[in-house]
């Protein structure tokens, strides 16, 4: 257990070092030396003010999405759940689209704030539904409806937008990226992420108890209503902050818990921290791939994760469906 986390931390550090070292501009040994000796030198600038914040951002977003996914899987007792399922990603995307189309993109932090508001709105709706309905399937179905509705409204924003520039901007943003992020962006994302992570960790014991089913958990003596709200609010906050900071990046919340599930023997509480670490690893790797794959236009991070993630989702669904039939 501890060994797994240590292993993931070491892997993350090693990968981050590689991700900071590699990029479009290739440096000689002397230039690397210069970057370390003098951070203000041109190679130093590239490493420490361009690549490092980007790598840190990818790690933070990945960790948030991994933790949010693991929390939602535990809450909904379903290995196919992830932030997209509750409609959180879609409403956050809608919030950002409205801000961009409304001409607020020039205002620093406005798009981010709008996305976070969208995510939290979905969170409030989901908390209300979770208090009313105990069955996890209900939440998934409402999530599908919420996603579809937010998607329709986003399409409406495109449809009615008079400016093709704004439309292109929204599209680019919806594809997800951690390009050109600085430490201010990082600091802005960190607050809601820490609160969200705290709420998810607090809910861990409730997620374990839910293994037994809703009614047994309710009778277990744990304050399940409170833990359930903490899990929903925490994962909404994490996913919302992630979308606010980097656009819509799918499937990390699905794949990260899947990677570590066997190592924690399926435990929905103990899986949380390793899922965050695995999410960070995945997204740093995906961003490195987005940067290093030679294409005319730099690949968008959300496109890379979707290309790899969607088949993983299909594979998991295939396996789940086979076990249902057995």
């Amino acid at each position: 257990m501890r060994r797994l986390e240590l292993f993931l931390v070491l892997g993350l550090l090693a990968l981050a070092a590689v991700a900071v070292s590699l990029g479009e501009s290739q440096f000689s040994a002397a230039q690397y030396h210069q970057a370390f000796a003098d951070p203000a030198s041109p190679p130093g600038e590239v490493l420490w003010t361009i690549r490092l914040p980007r790598v840190l951002m990818a790690a933070l977003i990945g960790a948030g999405l991994g933790l949010a996914g693991a929390t939602m899987q535990g809450l909904l007792r379903n290995p196919l759940a992830e932030p997209g399922v509750l409609g959180v990603s879609a409403t956050a995307g809608l919030g950002a689209s409205l801000a961009i189309a409304g001409g607020l993109a020039a205002l620093p932090g406005a798009v981010e704030a709008s996305a976070l508001v969208g995510a939290l709105a979905a969170g409030v709706v989901v908390i209300g539904l979770a208090a009313r309905f105990r069955e996890p399937e209900v939440l998934i179905l409402f999530g599908v409806a919420l996603s579809a509705f937010a998607g329709a409204l986003t399409a409406l924003v495109f449809n009615l937008s008079p400016s093709p520039v704004a439309t292109a901007e929204v599209l680019a943003w919806l594809m997800g990226s951690v390009e050109n992020r600085d430490l201010t962006d990082l600091a802005r994302a960190l607050g809601p992420m820490i609160v969200g992570a705290g709420l998810c960790m607090y809910a861990a014991k409730g997620l374990r108890m839910l293994t037994l089913g809703e009614e047994a958990a309710q009778m277990s003596g744990l304050p399940m209503a409170r833990l359930r709200v903490a899990a929903v609010a925490g994962s909404a906050l994490l996913a919302g902050a992630a979308v606010a900071a980097a656009g819509v990046i799918g499937f990390v919340g699905l794949a990260a818990p899947h990677l570590v599930r066997a190592a924690v023997r399926d435990d929905p509480g103990r899986i949380l921290r390793p899922s965050a670490l695995a999410g960070a690893l995945l997204l740093v790797a995906a961003d490195l791939a987005a940067r290093m794959i030679p294409t005319e236009q730099e690949l968008k991070l959300g496109v890379v994760t979707a290309l790899f993630g969607a088949p993983v989702f299909a594979l998991l669904a295939w396996r789940a469906a086979r076990s249902w039939r057995a």
């Binding site: 007792r77 293994t211 037994l212 089913g213 009614e215 047994a216 023997r265 929905p268």
Partner: peptide, 15 residues
């Protein structure tokens, strides 16, 4: 009180 509900589907493969 301890309660064993009729619904006994377990979500995860815990030991």
């Amino acid at each position: 009180v301890g309660y064993l509900p009729q619904e006994r589907r377990l979500a995860w493969n815990l030991p």
